[in-house]
Design a protein around this nucleic acid. Structure first.
Lengths: 138, 138
DNA sequence: TTGCAAATGCAACAGTATTGCAAATAATTC
DNA sequence: GAATTATTTGCAATACTGTTGCATTTGCAA
């Protein structure tokens, strides 16, 4: 079970809570909100613990935050190994307006843009809304 | 006072509440959250009324929603006349990580991107985080 | 196996947002 | 201009999301 290793590598203790959460995220293959996580693991673990687990994973660089157009916060597994100093989630996110799923499009970089005023750019965030392949068929 | 006309044109009644809210948004020149609006006009108008006013303006196409990286919902005046069926806010938003201001960069379109899977694209949303000119000086 | 730091569960609380309903206000018709 | 109708507003209640403090438990290392 390499999830245990992943957690340890980021200087966190591999508790049963964290292992289950991470297992769920890996299985999900899409961004998952605290609410969705709680619906799945709420019987087993405390609501607040799940909040703290998500925060710990984000700080450690195991999960990264994703926002959809409605401002809903979700988390998704980092594909590259991020750390506590910097996330490398410089890819586009896709949000399906039909099933509300949000997932990362790992191999597409967010394009550079030319900004008129001389503002200092630190990071870029981009979401594409549309219909995913599942919902397209239906 | 052409704000009255603007409201009427979108089939809403130009009440004092709505006129004040719109006046505030025009003056602000940046995206404003409900909380910020309430801090300014909360003495005069009810908190819930302000929520409903924002919603009404959004539905009517007078304001459009803006999200920053923390998932905070703000509203900004639509430069082009939108309507209740579609918003045309296809421009980039800039968020200053120092003063937390968010504003529209009207004249820069969100770039097209090539998406690998055959997903159906409906709209694109982009936020650039950085430092605004005000905070740069400081 | 003992001692310490990290992690968890529970309770309380804070902030944001929505809904129902009655009262007030604006627009419409006569 | 008065009466009628529909919209808008304020208040109360409620729901959802997220955070903090503290006592207890758990994991890890000496």
């Amino acid at each position: 079970m390499e999830l245990k290793e992943l957690i340890k590598r980021h200087n966190l203790r591999p508790t049963s809570n964290r292992l289950e959460v991470l297992k769920f995220y890996r299985k999900a293959g899409k961004a998952v909100s605290h609410g969705e996580l709680d619906a799945e693991l709420g019987e087993q673990f405390d609501r607040i613990t799940l909040y703290r687990t998500l925060k710990a994973f984000e700080d450690a660089g195991i999960l990264h935050k994703v926002y959809d157009e409605k401002g809903i916060v979700r988390y998704s597994m980092c594909s590259h190994d991020c750390d506590n100093t910097q996330h490398q989630d410089n890819h586009i996110h896709f949000h399906c307006t039909s099933c509300e799923a949000t997932f990362c499009i790992e191999n597409v970089e967010i394009p550079q843009v030319q900004i008129p005023q001389n503002l200092i750019v630190e990071s870029r965030y981009m979401v594409i809304n549309g219909t995913c392949n599942n919902c397209k068929r239906a």
